[in-house]
C-alpha cells in the first residue's frame, strides 16, 4: 500500500479552482518534492493531505487513513502525519521542551518521563539538545524551524509534510534546516515537500513534481526532470529559478 495516495483531487476557494484533478502516489520511504510558481496549488495540495483544507472531490489516503473532515478521524490521521510550516508556528508561551512534549503527552498519553526522553532524543536529532528550556522567541529562525521539525518527529509520524520550510529564513540559515531534512530522508522517512530550493529537490528528492495552474504538469525521477524538462513552462521555471 502506498504511503500517500491522491486521486483526482479538486479544490476551490470560492470561484477560484486551485486544484484541477491532481493524482499523486508516494511509496513508503520516498522523498517527493513539489515545485512550481506561487499560486500553482502545491501548498494547497500539501495542506489537503493532513486535512487543513477540505477537498471538493477526489480521494486522499495517507498512512492508511482516508482524509475527510470528521474531526475524530482527522486526529487519528494527524498522529501519523507530521507537518512543518513556513512560519515555524512554535507555541510562544511554551519552552522548546514543552512544545515537543505537549502532544505526545496529551494525545497519545505518553508518561511525562518518557515524553521527556523522547523530546531530548528528537532535539538531539536536530542538533539542539542545549535548547530544551529556551523559549522560541530566544532562538534564531533556523533553530525555531529545527525545533518545529523535532516537534513533528516526536509524534513518530509515518509521513512528514514540509511546506516551504526555508522560505522565511535568511539565506545563511537555510543550510542547517536542509541538512536536518536530508538526514531524515537518508533515515528512510517518507517525505513530501513543497520547496523553492531547486538544488535540494534535485539532489535529495527521489521524485520531483512540477505543478502549474492547479495541475501536475511534469513529474518523474528528480535528476531526469531537472536534466530534461519536457514542457516550456518547466524549462522556464527551472532556468528562472536556478540559483
Amino acid at each position: 500500500m502506498p504511503a500517500v495516495l491522491i486521486e483526482n483531487v479538486h479544490k476551490s476557494f470560492g470561484d477560484l479552482e486551485v486544484l484541477k484533478g491532481v493524482s499523486v502516489t508516494v511509496e513508503s520511504g520516498q522523498v517527493v518534492a513539489l515545485i512550481g510558481r506561487s499560486g500553482s496549488g502545491k501548498s494547497t495540495l500539501l495542506r489537503c493531505i493532513n486535512g487543513l483544507e477540505a477537498i471538493n472531490s477526489g480521494r486522499i489516503e495517507v498512512a492508511g487513513h482516508v482524509v475527510d473532515q470528521d474531526q475524530k478521524r482527522l486526529r487519528e490521521l494527524r498522529k501519523d502525519v507530521g507537518i512543518v510550516f513556513q512560519s515555524y508556528n512554535l507555541f510562544p508561551h511554551l519552552t522548546v521542551g514543552q512544545n515537543i512534549m505537549l502532544s505526545p503527552r496529551i494525545t497519545q498519553n505518553v508518561p511525562t518521563a518518557q515524553a521527556e526522553k523522547l523530546a531530548k532524543d528528537v532535539l538531539a536529532q536536530v542538533g539542539l539538545s542545549e535548547k530544551f528550556d529556551s523559549y522560541p522567541d530566544n532562538l534564531s529562525g533556523g533553530q525555531q524551524q529545527r525545533v518545529a521539525i523535532a516537534r513533528s518527529l516526536a509524534m513518530q509520524p509515518k509521513v512528514m509534510l514540509f511546506d516551504e520550510v526555508t522560505s522565511a529564513l535568511d539565506p545563511e540559515l537555510t543550510g542547517e534546516v536542509l541538512l536536518v531534512m536530508e538526514k531524515l530522508a537518508k533515515d528512510g522517512m517518507t517525505m513530501l515537500l513543497v520547496t523553492h530550493e531547486m538544488a535540494f529537490a534535485r539532489n535529495v528528492a527521489s521524485t520531483t513534481i512540477f505543478m502549474h495552474q492547479g495541475k501536475i504538469w511534469e513529474s518523474g525521477a528528480s535528476k531526469e526532470v531537472f536534466a530534461n524538462p519536457q514542457t516550456p513552462e518547466m524549462l522556464n521555471f527551472v532556468s528562472a529559478g536556478a540559483k
Binding site: L52, R78, S103
Partner: peptide
C-alpha cells in the same frame, strides 16, 4: 494567530485541548 490553531490541530489536539 490563525497558525497557532493550525499547528496545534496538526499535532492532533482536540478543540478543547
Amino acid at each position: 494567530p490563525r497558525q497557532q490553531w493550525e499547528a496545534s490541530a496538526s499535532l492532533a489536539l482536540t478543540t478543547p485541548q
